[in-house]
């Protein structure tokens, strides 16, 4: 589904990714771990199309198509979703309208009609329950006045409604207390399916207690220096990143 080969990228002429390879198949959950500054978020941002990153080499294929050539919104239409580390506040933009517009934009791109209001209301109520979000948050401006946990839940709600094929969760666990972490994780787990792949970008092993990955990769200095199963995450918890960074040097 996603095939990254020898990806190099820089920000303001400073190299961040230095030949990254990653293969993700439908149904898989990959965790990408690594110390601060290793390039984890850069990878997530490049996949979603955020400006400010210069891809200097390598390729990213999504279903055989050059992902990096696609405009941001087309990536979304084709099922790529980035749950952001710092969800943006949109004052005056009603959360429910925003969700409906997003869903219908995707439906239209796929040749479907807009979802009728009644069906949409049913859908959104059902999905809000999944992330235990009070309906009052649907009537408010997107993320405005939301706590850190509420913002993250809102990201997972969007994901649940848009049903992406490839979901990238960028530090979704950061700033969450244990209850919020559990709710968010349950939301993510409910979305696991045979045709959907999930990439978890995280600094800590903690999230992986709740969302069990099939593969764990360690990113250091812009490259994947070690891959393994979930036991690798435990090892990192015990030993830190130092021993792997030395390997990367």
């Amino acid at each position: 589904m996603l095939s990254i080969k020898n990806l190099t990228a820089s920000v303001d002429d400073k190299p961040i990714l230095n030949g990254l390879d990653l293969e993700v198949k439908p149904g898989e959950v990959h965790a990408i771990m690594g110390p601060n500054g290793s390039g984890k978020s850069t990878l997530a941002h490049i996949l979603s199309g955020r400006e400010g990153y210069e891809v200097t080499g390598g390729e990213v294929k999504y279903d055989g198509e050059d992902l990096l050539e696609l405009p941001i919104e087309e990536r979304a239409h084709k099922g790529v979703f980035l749950a952001m580390q710092y969800p943006v506040e949109l004052p005056g933009v009603n959360n429910m309208n925003f969700l409906r517009e997003a869903l219908n934009a995707k439906r239209r791109a796929g040749g479907e009609d807009d979802m009728d209001a009644v069906t949409f209301m049913k859908l959104i109520r059902e999905k809000a329950k999944l992330v235990q979000m009070d309906e009052k948050f649907l009537k408010r401006s997107v993320n405005v006045g939301f706590s850190g946990g509420e913002k993250k839940r809102n990201e997972i709600l969007q994901m649940a409604i848009l049903e992406p094929r490839l979901a990238i969760l960028d530090e979704t666990d950061s700033g969450l207390d244990i209850d919020a972490l559990r709710i968010v994780s349950e939301g993510v787990n409910a979305l696991r399916s045979a045709d959907r792949a999930i990439i978890l970008v995280t600094h800590y092993q903690r999230l992986l207690d709740y969302i069990e990955p099939d593969h764990v990769h360690v990113l250091a200095k812009g490259r994947i220096v070690r891959s393994g199963d979930k036991s690798l995450a435990r090892e990192l918890e015990e030993r830190g990143y130092g021993w792997l960074e030395e390997d990367a040097a």
């Binding site: 979603s48 199309g49 955020r50 400006e51 405009p71 941001i72 919104e73 990536r75 979304a76 239409h77 979703f81 980035l82 952001m84 969800p87 943006v88 949109l90 925003f98 517009e101 997003a102 934009a105 995707k106 791109a109 969007q158 848009l162």
Partner: peptide, 16 residues
């Protein structure tokens, strides 16, 4: 631009 990116990343075109 951050707000615009956020909306586009959810599938809305630049004009919308």
């Amino acid at each position: 631009p951050q707000q615009r990116f956020y909306l586009q990343s959810r599938g809305l075109d630049a004009d919308t």
